[in-house]
């Protein structure tokens, strides 16, 4: 067993929150630059140039890329041979609190979702997913994510008889939500598993690098087909019309029940914030 103090986790979470909020995901910046030439709308081009300029300014001025510095999604891959000293959840929330306070990041969490909706004041709690993996390390991925893109997410239990066509139709219908998600977006699609797990699959799909391709050739082909079709919708940068609506479509699939075909779609906005570290 390798002993790791949760103080190290707090420090990592804090650093990752600051980094993710100020440094645009490099592969996203690269994809914006690369697709600028394919955008035909003058407004769309202008918006993509603003995105590139903003990324530079956020780094030089140490300001968050977007004022909505999000809720903090935290994905932990916890090595089975790690002995954690301390409370993991408390340690993560402490890191979030320190980053959002010291980094002048916006606190956007409310304690009660329906009645008072009073701000918790420190942007906690984080939404934490822990997966156990072999080994003696902890991999931490932080994705602060804004409310606008989150609101455009969709989940549906599709009819099994509908098959792949039902999935395509659902994704393309949900893709209309890209207009409100600060496009160009990354589209994350989850297919299979159960009601509660399929949303997580979609969210995890967003974590994949733009350049990577699904190892399953059928899913890779589906990702490509959906990307082409979404970019024909005309939504364009900022939803103000154009060709570049999505930079990538990423699908994560998992086994499911014989009676089920769950599907979920979620988006990452062009202000994609994500950072990871290994302890």
């Amino acid at each position: 067993m390798r002993e790791i103090s949760t103080l190290e986790v707090t420090k990592a979470i804090k650093d990752l929150c600051l980094q993710a909020n100020r440094v645009l995901r490099p592969d996203v910046l690269e994809a914006i630059r690369a697709s600028l030439g394919f955008e035909v709308s003058p407004t769309g081009k202008e918006i993509m140039e603003q995105i590139i300029k903003n990324a530079g300014l956020a780094v030089s001025e140490q300001l968050p890329i977007c004022q909505d510095t999000g809720y903090v999604g935290v994905f932990i891959e916890l090595g089975q041979d790690v002995l954690l000293k301390g409370d993991l959840t408390l340690a993560i929330n402490e890191g979030v609190k320190e980053a959002y306070d010291e980094g002048y990041l916006r606190k956007s969490m409310v304690a009660c979702p329906i009645f008072e909706r009073e701000n918790t004041g420190d942007n906690t709690p984080a939404f934490i997913t822990v997966d156990t993996v072999p080994g003696d390390k902890i991999k931490i991925t932080v994705i602060p994510k804004g409310g606008g893109t989150e609101n455009a997410s969709r989940l549906q239990m599709l009819p099994v008889s509908g098959g792949v066509e039902a999935v395509k139709e659902f994704v393309l219908e949900a893709a209309e939500g890209a207009a409100k998600s600060c496009p160009p977006v990354i589209v994350g699609v989850g297919i299979g598993a159960s009601f509660d797990k399929v949303g997580l699959l979609a969210k995890k799909a967003l974590l994949r690098s733009i350049a990577d391709s699904n190892p399953d050739p059928e899913l890779a082909a589906l990702e490509n087909e959906l990307l082409v079709r979404i970019n024909k919708l005309g939504i364009g940068p900022a939803g103000l019309g154009g060709r570049i609506t999505a930079l990538a479509v990423k699908i994560e699939a998992a086994p499911t029940h014989i009676a089920c075909l769950p599907a979920a779609v979620t988006f990452n906005c062009h202000a994609a914030r994500q950072a990871e570290a290994i302890i």
Binding site: Q50, I51, N54, A58, L63, I65, C182
Partner: peptide, 13 residues
């Protein structure tokens, strides 16, 4: 009017 979302460091300038 529409301002561009997600370019908040730029807009603050």
């Amino acid at each position: 009017f529409a301002a561009t979302g997600g370019v908040a460091a730029l807009l603050s300038s």
